[in-house]
Write a protein that binds this DNA or RNA. Sequence first.
DNA 1: TACATACAC
DNA 2: TATGGTGTATGTA
Length: 436
Amino acid sequence: MLDAAENTSLLRRLAGPSTGKAGLAKDQTEINRIIAEASKGSPFYENERKKDEQVTRRIEVLLKKREELAKAADIAKLEANAERLIAELEATRDLSQIICHVDMDAFYSSVEVLDNPELADKAFAVTGGGVLSTASYEARKWGVRSGMATFIAKKLCPDLICVAHHFPRYIEMSKAVMSVMRKYDSNMASWGLDEAYLNLTQYCAAHNLTAEACVAQMREEVHRETKLTCSAGIAPNKMLAKICSDRNKPNGQYYLAPDRDSVMTFTHDLSIRKIPGIGRVTERVIESVGIKTCGDIYTHRAAISMLDKELGLKSLLRAYLGIASNVVEPWARESTKSVGSERTFKTISDTGRLLEKLDEIAETLESDLEHGGWCGRTITLRYKLDTFQSFTRAKTMDRYVKSKQDLFAVSTLPHPRCRYDPFHGIDGDSRWAKSL
DNA sequence: TACATACAC
DNA sequence: TATGGTGTATGTA
């Protein structure tokens, strides 16, 4: 049995990052309990517990600060400050563009079903590196989620079928999907293999189509060409479109009319967790001051105004107002800021063997840099211990580099636990990563 | 610039 | 028995 110290936040944390975004399964509390029970005592669990405690401390500091500031606060003035920002943001509202976010339904799973129809309607998951990349809808009913450790998923769903991933196939199918969608907006922006943003304003005008008819047609065409289904959201900006694409999943679409009232009604009861960029941690922090929905942001505008630095008044007001970017641009090579390679392996405590591992990874990175024609000035070494604690060490060079030899410059940087010899005494390092 | 944290797919 | 890989943004010192 779990003891009382296992609070709700830790249980929710252990359930993984994707549990909050997706619709709640039948009994999430029971699912969370099974997950915690299976993890308990493991180094992973202990690390998560520590991180959860850190967030708890952070929240305590935040609430204490709020208490202090509240004593001398001029509520009217704080609210006026928020109102001024709201008016400023409102002036930037642009409802003129038809933005669409398309999300393939359980993409990797669906491709696996195409290649092996036996899997249809079965509870199965695509795995790689001990965790799930995605789960079929049948498996999701059991609380199985992407990012979950395979052995945990098996506890939740004992008959779960595990299939190893086939990335080249997903890439191939992704290309087929994207090329259909690009016909509707040549500036389409893909996001990963299975998502895309489009601006359909021009296409709709040119073909005299409503936004909804246009998207329905596009989804049909994707299905005809690939036998894969997708869901879509149509809204005046990317943030709203993304949230909308989740509303009628799978194989559905949701249209949010481009007028202020419709948008404000939509955000009013929207959970803050649905806002892209607000994850498990930020949700907890914001919730601690009494904000669960975007509507609550307005109610608590004075408190947020006081804690602007910690909570970000402007970005929360944008969420409340449903205002976000509507610029859709294809990926640009010059936008790349870093290139990296990392690998997880069984615990290595021997310095020599650790350096050999680092050598392998540096080699992979060197070849990636060569292929892409990249080079860089800052080399970052990321490493994780068998306690799941992770660290980074960085070094900026006085010239641009790309060779394995140069990448190794970071290998001599000291580790906090052993100032002088980085590799002696790092007992139980389980993982090395290298990035540039 | 160095490092940690949070987030997304 | 056992919890990934790649990349971006941001706060702090």
